[in-house]
């Protein structure tokens, strides 16, 4: 594992390896820069080296400043996909969570080059 963060009440768990990033939980950190900068930095480093990369989001809630962080991450991923990296993004949401489903649908058009899949789950 290259980089990990423990899940807290306000922040999701983050697991970053050579070929995969998994983000699980709720995201409304007190300081979004403090939370997001190491993730963005480490993902950028990984994308520079890998040819295949999978991203899994299992979020239950995120606030507006976290949305900004997600857009930054998505842009970086899509740029990498445009540059030839095979990137698959999976947006998983609880089947009865309309809010996360709608957010996932909105994010879809952020990707021109990477593949993006919406995946409902019974429980996250």
């Amino acid at each position: 594992m290259i980089f990990t963060l423990e899940r807290t009440k306000r922040t999701p768990s983050v697991e970053l390896s050579e070929n995969r990033l998994v983000v699980r939980g709720e995201c409304y950190p007190e300081n979004i820069a403090e939370f997001s900068e190491p993730i963005i930095g480490n993902v950028r480093d990984v994308l520079d080296k890998t040819e295949v990369f999978e991203v899994i989001f299992e979020l239950l809630y995120f606030n507006s400043s976290s949305a900004m962080f997600l857009f930054d991450l998505f842009n970086m991923l899509d740029d990498a996909a445009g540059g030839g990296c095979d990137i698959a993004v999976r947006w998983r949401y609880e089947a009865d969570d309309d809010s996360m489903e709608e957010a996932g649908a909105d994010f879809e058009d952020a990707f021109e080059h990477a593949s993006y899949v919406l995946e409902p789950r019974d429980e996250l």
Binding site: S64, A67, F107, A110
Partner: peptide, 20 residues
């Protein structure tokens, strides 16, 4: 164009959060 899209998505997200 990308910034414009991001802004539109953020507004949409904020609207949805407000509704919720």
């Amino acid at each position: 164009q990308r910034l414009k899209k991001t802004l539109a998505r953020l507004v949409k997200h904020a609207d949805r959060t407000e509704k919720k």
